[in-house]
Design a protein around this nucleic acid. Structure first.
Length: 556
RNA sequence: UGGGGAAUCGUUCAAUUGGCAGGACAGCGGACUCUGACUCCGUCAAUCUAGGUUCAAAUCCUAGUUCCCCAACCA
């Protein structure tokens, strides 16, 4: 596959053959159905790209954004808002098709009455424990409930009383009457309605009975005229049930198709566990830049384009596997390289004094904003006799392959001059605190006419013009490839060094005007963006991702 | 254990449906370079196993192996 070209997959193959055979009046209609019980993460992004991507690529294709809000005790308005923002940010459009399962509660209820009327559902008085105990096991068949043979009239009466609030939580449930000895556990008279005296974020206290996923989901799809209902592998076992309900009711019957969810190494993807990281303050919130949430990635500086390209490259299949986080990094760098504004920032500064440059003098030098994009233009950078360079760019006794500064060595200051190190000063701890150099006035702009080769090019900032900033460097949130291997002990695998703050960074003054949502490349240091906590007085930048570093790698 | 799925380079997705196993990422080597970046070139490397059918098998058949999912009034 070449870059940016749409990767085909088995789901698109199914759609193509459906289209060929004239299935669904040749419509293609998908949906992305999140439960608003947490923030969306990169795994959801895969599903979003799949469902909305299909809608974009087929003539008249549509994709609904539908909240599967059937469980009021776990769901909140805050999550609804974040999900809407995230899908929008990803660049997908649902036009006027924003739906909520809760909008269908009345229809779902009426269909339940219908199911009772055809003798395929009954009210059970058993407790949750009793139901569990009589469901049987993987090996053993289940046993019929004593209430399984109630008359239609009695079931109708009881179900209406459930709806009217005459029973407490857990006192009664409505179950489908299928087969208690079915080899598929999901078919052993699944519960389809439970009593929950809880306020729903949208329907308030209108209802005290709420539909279960299996009952609700297929009907939601049916009501919306979904053609291909795409979900993850763990629902494969539910498909017979999905089909059974729709067949019993005789309503429009979408096709459920399952694919393997995304797993990334060094990352967890469980909403429950991500919520725990937030609730227990292991991270600063759902949008902490170390989180794999879409909001976290956004704050970190990821672009929607890079995530969409990633989703395209990983493909879609039924085999579950683990994607290397390096592929995400790659897609990110590929996009950022094209768009990021180049600037200079010194993360760990050490002072350089140009001894032959007049003190008190300064000049403005020209610099490209983006060598990959001529239209990005140029800017001016101030130069003076006192500068900062990166501490790691100087060695007192450098090896031959070190192309940077050392006693007697000449390097280029990007966009400025060649300088040669003549001396350096150390403090009592033996740390280099000042480096003395001379500059060659004939090399202004970073060129010399005499054909002299200078291997190293350093970024820098003029000491008296530089602005200060705090920079946050990130590493993987977890320090093992599969943090979830130990079950709920994943907290033990948190990387204690996932966040490193550098307070005294020196940036070129143009960054005073840095804006949120813009990607910068701090030359030789990586891609950065202004953090949402940044203020005029205290600038804070996040490192989105570092540059590839073959030199650093070689050092190890 | 009953049921449902899946097995192809280190990782991941492909293979015109029986016709030379290909791409991407990672790795390694090199070229280029005012970012040790980018770019470019090269290179390493796989069909779960055992039988069978066939001129020919990743693909079909038989037997086996391994891995994943299911026993919430979660989704």
């Amino acid at each position: 596959m070449t870059e940016n070209e749409q990767q085909s997959n088995f789901i698109r193959d199914i759609i193509n053959s459906d289209l060929e055979s004239g299935e669904n009046e040749s419509r293609v209609h998908t949906r992305f159905p999140p439960e608003p019980n947490g923030y969306l993460h990169i795994g959801h992004a895969k599903s979003i790209c799949l469902n909305f991507g299909i809608a974009e690529d087929y003539p008249n294709g549509k994709c609904n954004l539908r909240f599967d809000d059937t469980n009021p005790v776990k769901e909140e308005e805050e999550y609804v808002e974040s999900i809407i923002e995230d899908v929008k940010w990803m660049g997908f459009k649902w036009e006027d098709r924003l739906y909520f399962a809760s909008d269908y509660f009345q229809q779902l209820y009426e269909h339940a009455v219908q199911l009772i009327n055809i003798g395929k559902a009954y009210v059970d008085d058993q407790s949750a424990e009793e139901i569990r105990d009589t469901r049987g096991t993987l090996k053993d068949p289940g046993a019929d409930s004593p209430h399984r043979t109630r008359s239609v009239e009695e079931n109708l009466t009881l179900f209406n009383k459930m709806k009217a609030g005459e029973f407490g939580n857990g006192e009664k449930v409505l179950r489908a009457k299928i087969d208690m000895v079915h080899p598929n556990l999901n078919m052993r008279d699944p519960v389809i309605y439970r009593i929950l005296h809880a306020s729903h974020h949208r329907t308030g206290d209108d209802w005290c009975i709420y539909p279960m996923y299996d009952w609700a989901h297929g009907l939601e799809d049916s009501i919306e005229g979904i053609t291909h209902s795409i979900c993850t592998l763990e629902f494969e076992d539910h498909r017979p049930l999905y089909d059974w309900f729709l067949d019993q009711l005789g309503v429009y019957h979408p096709q459920q198709i399952e694919f393997a969810r995304l797993n990334l190494n060094y990352t967890i993807m469980s909403k429950r566990k991500l919520k725990l990281l937030v609730d227990d303050c292991h991270v600063k919130g759902w949008d902490d830049p170390r989180m794999p949430t879409i909001s976290g990635l956004r704050r970190r500086g990821y672009t929607p384009e890079s995530i969409r390209e990633f989703a395209n490259r990983i493909g879609v299949a039924k085999r579950d596997g683990v994607i290397d986080i390096a592929l995400l990094d790659h897609c990110l760098r590929e996009d950022l390289n094209k768009r990021a504004l180049r600037v200079m920032a010194v993360l760990d500064p050490v002072k350089v004094v140009i001894t032959n440059y007049p003190e008190g003098q300064a000049e403005e030098l020209d610099a490209d904003n983006n060598p990959e994009d001529e239209s990005a233009g140029k800017r001016k950078i101030p130069f003076s006799n006192e500068l900062y360079i990166e501490r790691s760019d100087f060695m007192e006794d450098p090896p031959k392959k070190f192309f940077r500064l050392g006693p007697g060595r000449e390097v280029r200051l990007k966009h400025a001059y060649y300088i040669t190190c003549t001396d350096f000063i150390k403090n009592e701890n033996g740390d280099v605190i000042e480096i003395h150099c001379t500059y060659d006035p004939a090399t202004k702009g970073g060129w010399s006419d005499d054909g002299r080769k200078v291997r190293g090019t350093l970024h820098w900032a003029s000491a008296k013009h530089a602005i200060g900033a705090e920079i946050q460097l990130y590493d993987n949130l977890f320090n093992v490839e599969n943090p979830e291997a130990g079950g709920d002990n994943f907290i033990d695998n948190l990387n204690p060094n996932s966040l490193t703050k550098s307070k005294n960074c020196k940036l070129e003054p143009s960054l005073t005007d840095a804006k949120q949502g813009i990607n910068y490349q701090f030359l030789r240091n990586g891609y950065f963006c202004l953090d949402s906590d940044s203020t005029q007085e205290n600038l804070v930048f996040n490192r989105t991702v570092g540059l590839r570093d073959s030199w650093g790698k070689k050092q190890k």
